[in-house]
Simulated assay, not measured.
Amino acid sequence: MKVKPIFWVEGEVAILDQRLLPEKVVYIRCKRYQQVAQTIKNMAIRGAPAIGIAAAMGVALGVWKLKSARRLEERFQKICQTLTNTRPTAHNLFWAIERMKKRFYSHKNSSLPELKRYLQKEAENILEEDIATNRKIGENGKRLIKAGITVLTHCNAGALATGGYGTALGVLRAAWESGVRFKVIADETRPYLQGARLTAWELQQEGIPVTIITDSTAGYLMAQGKINLVIVGADRIAANGDTANKIGTYSLAILAKHHNIPFYVAAPFSTIDLNIANGQQIPIEKRPGKELAYLGKKCIYPQGVNALYYAFDVTPARYITGIITEKGVIEPPFKKAINRLSRRRQNG
C-alpha cells in the first residue's frame, strides 16, 4: 500500500487520520507529543503495532522539542506517562515506550542534541522493524491460504494498523503476491467500521476480491460452508495464548470452532505480554457509549438510552488454531511454545 500510516518529517510526526478514510486521505501533523497522544486516544491512529510506533515517535517528539536539559529525566517521564495513559489494551504501546526508555537511559548523559537524534532514530527503527516483522509474518502464514478458499477477517489488521504491511492482512497480501487466488469476507466491525472502511479499502487497492458483511452474518455463512478460514489480528496476547482483539472476535472464534473452521491470530511477538498469565488479566478498554450511538454526527439511538461499549474482548486459547508470528506459526500448547520462543529470543 502506497499510503503511509505514520512517519517522521522535519521534526514533526505525520499521522494518517484513519477516521476520514476512505473518503479523504488527510495527515495530522503533530508538532507536540500531546497531539500524538490525542491521535492515539481519539482513534485517528489505531491497531496495536501502529499505536506502538506512534507512542515511540511521540516520546521522540517530546524530547525533540525540549529547549534545554533542565529537569530532563522528570520531563521525559511525564512525556512517557502521557502516552502510556492513552489506551490500556494494546501491549505494543507499552512495549515501545519501554524500549524508548531504555534508549533514553543508555544515552541520558549525552548532549541534548545527540539524545534527540538517538531517540528519533530508535522510533524510526521501531517503524522499519515493524514493516520487516510484518513481512515475515506474511511469509510464515501464507502457506495457510489455499487457492479458491474464502477467508474471513475482523476489524483491520492491515498496513493501516501497523507500520505499513499488516499482520492478518499481511498474510493475505503475501499469499496474493505469491500468486495464490482467493476471496476475503470482511466484517463491518461496529462502531468504527474498520472492516468496512479500512480493510475493504486496503484489499481493493491490492486487487484482492473482498465482500463486506454485517458482524452478525458470519455464523450464517459458516453454517453454509462459505467460509474456510478465519484470520484476525491481536492487541495483546497473554503468556498462555489467550488473545485480546477487537470486540466480536471471541464470538467469531466460538462460531469457527463449532463449524470446524481453522481460526488463526496474526501478530508480532512483541504483542505477547509475558507478564500476563492469562486473558483474565488483560485490561479491556471501555470507551464512551456515545461512540456507539452516533454514525457521523447523527444519533441513531433514542435520546436517554444507555450504550455500553467495550472496545475489545478476549478469545481463550482453546479456540485458537495457531498464532502466526515473525518467529513462525505457534501451535498449542501455546504456553510451552511461547516460553520456548521467548527464551530463544532472549539468548539472541
Rank of each mutant, 00 (worst) to 15 (best):
M43Q: 13
P262F: 01
E10G: 03
I79T: 06
N109Y: 07
N339R: 15
L295Q: 03
E73Y: 10
K41S: 14
A253W: 04
A60D: 01
L221D: 14
R197D: 03
I338M: 09
F7G: 00
R117N: 09
A55I: 03
Q303M: 05
G304M: 00
G233I: 13
L16E: 02
G52H: 12
T86Y: 06
E12G: 06
H154I: 01
N278E: 15
A168H: 11
R117I: 03
C155E: 12
D235M: 09
L21I: 07
V184C: 01
I272D: 00
R75G: 01
Q204I: 01
I261A: 11
I237H: 10
A69T: 02
G248S: 14
L229E: 05
L115T: 04
T82F: 02
R29K: 15
A50R: 14
A50Q: 12
M222L: 14
I276V: 14
F104N: 08
R190Q: 13
S68L: 00
I213H: 06
T162A: 08
H107L: 05
G179L: 09
R117D: 05
L115M: 05
I145P: 11
L119I: 08
G296H: 08
E285Y: 14
E122D: 10
A317L: 01
D273L: 02
D130M: 04
A234K: 10
K102R: 12
L93P: 05
T133G: 10
F269S: 15
L341K: 15
T199Y: 00
G296W: 03
R236I: 06
I126Q: 12
L20P: 07
R70Y: 09
G225V: 12
I227C: 12
T315F: 02
V36C: 02
P5R: 05
G179R: 11
G296Q: 13
L112G: 03
I212Y: 01
V59G: 01
I324Y: 09
D235P: 08
A159D: 05
T133I: 15
R344W: 03
N260W: 11
K4M: 11
P191S: 00
N134F: 00
A157S: 15
R344M: 12
I145M: 07
S178T: 07
I97G: 04
V305C: 04
D242H: 12
D313H: 10
V314H: 12
N275S: 14
A50C: 10
V314M: 07
V25I: 15
